[in-house]
Amino acid sequence: MPGVTSPSGGHNTNKAVRHHTLVVLVENQPGVLARVAGLFARRGFNIYSLAVAPTDDDERFSRITIVVDVESSPLEQITKQLFKLINVVKISELDPDDSVERELMIATVKADPSVRSQVIELVDVFKGSVIDVGFDELSIAVNGEPDKLDDVEELLRPYGIVELQRTGRVALPKLERTPPRLKSVQNRVAN
């Protein structure tokens, strides 16, 4: 399950193992998450991270963003099996190269008064924020690309990470950079 380390044992999610993101639109009904997660489990597929929340049409639909380790299993078979679930309405498959991804990390870090300013400075560099201050600890929040969070995590580690949570990533497809007409001309040239 998701955590601070990737399945390869390192801290960098994108470097060692190739991940794919499935964005699954589901009917907002009890038990749907169990159906989706159960399907992964019984077909032997490993979920790297999972994020679930209602969509803009929250009465009817939720969106589940699932990051899977694609080396371990044929992605096409997962997608097809998922789509057989009656409550699954739509599945989009996002390659990391063609999508924008964000993740939120919150962490409590050892920070006695002598190093507190160093930790705050580090958090500032990554455009994060301090969300709680204790006698010798700080809680911080950083959001950004999963790679960046890996870096923050590594840099904070020497101070002593007391507790750390990441939300799992959410993703959207990258937008077109060129107007549609221009694109079709380019395609014709390419062909």
Binding site: K80, F83, K84
Partner: peptide, 8 residues
């Protein structure tokens, strides 16, 4: 009729 059978 089941797309998941194709290529399984």
């Amino acid at each position: 009729i089941d797309p998941a059978e194709l290529g399984k």
